[in-house]
């Protein structure tokens, strides 16, 4: 069974000054254990896509199913990592309490163990008693990833998760994501505007058109399981695929960042 099935998904915002169709007729699936990157021009409706999948907004057309169950409201086994870690972590809670936030239904002991495991997985063993604002940006985003993982979601949604950190930290976090999803066999849907990142991380890359977004290409990434920031990024397969994605994006007549 597919982990995620998106069928004919469309969403139109209705405002005072008319309507705006952000996404239209989106069709794709994600298999269990896959890491799928969605790349598209800025403003093409990537965030709308994530919000409809996570049940935060109700799409006007089409359907989303999570392992066979239609999404109606926020699914209970789904985690989201947002771009803006400084605003998605709760500043009044310690790092550990932030990671424990979604684990309301567990016993106290299980919560503590899960949070400790998740923090260890992202390399933040000693930081549990600190507060998010005492950490660097990269470390804060690790906390957000730990929180998402501790929830043990069937599907992890990531909305431009590494767009707000410096290049060095971004490489580290990308490799961190590849490692933990191998270790925990997590299914990931990651939205980005960065072509290189989508090819480096993905098992598949979905290329979206400009708004209203539709899927213009669904590409397999033939780079294998183990990837390396230097050798992978300089391999022929990587360079070819990056050029193809870039070509698909620029042929869509919208500004590409």
């Amino acid at each position: 069974m597919k982990m995620l099935e998106v069928r004919g998904l469309g969403h139109t915002y209705r405002g005072k000054d008319g309507t705006h169709t952000a996404i239209d007729g989106l069709e794709f699936t994600v298999d269990p254990g896959e890491l799928v990157c969605v790349v598209g021009p800025s403003g093409c409706g990537k965030s709308t896509l994530l919000r409809t999948i996570s049940g935060l907004i109700k799409p006007t057309r089409g359907s989303v199913s999570l392992h066979g169950n239609p999404v109606d409201g926020v699914p209970s086994d789904l985690s989201v990592v947002f771009q803006d870690y400084s605003r998605s972590l709760f500043p009044w809670l310690s790092v550990t309490k932030n990671v424990e936030f979604p684990l309301r239904k567990l016993t106290r002991r299980n919560r503590t163990t899960r949070a400790a495991e998740a923090l260890a997985a992202v390399g933040l063993d000693g930081a549990g008693r600190k507060y998010p604002w005492q950490l660097s940006g990269g470390m804060q985003q690790r906390v957000a990833i730990a929180r998402a993982l501790a929830y043990r979601p069937s599907l992890l949604l990531m909305d431009e998760p590494f767009a707000s950190v410096d290049a060095q930290t971004r490489f580290e976090l990308e490799d961190l994501l590849l490692r933990v999803r191998r270790e925990q066999d997590t299914t990931v849907l990651l939205v980005t505007h960065d072509i290189d990142e989508s090819v480096y991380l993905g098992d598949r890359v979905l290329v979206l058109s400009k708004s209203p977004a539709t899927v213009v290409a669904d590409l397999d990434v033939p780079l294998g399981q183990h990837r390396d920031q230097i050798t992978t990024r300089s391999s022929d397969a990587f360079v070819d695929l990056r050029a193809r994605v870039a070509g698909l994006l620029t042929s869509a007549p919208a500004r590409v960042r």
Partner: peptide
């Protein structure tokens, strides 16, 4: 911050939970 509310909701927190666990501490 609407992102605080959205984060809580994405993790399955209901309306009352959002008031108690997000709105109150951030307004305190």
């Amino acid at each position: 911050d609407p992102l605080h509310t959205e984060t809580a909701r994405a993790f399955g927190t209901g309306g009352f939970g959002v008031l108690r666990r997000v709105a109150l501490p951030s307004a305190a």
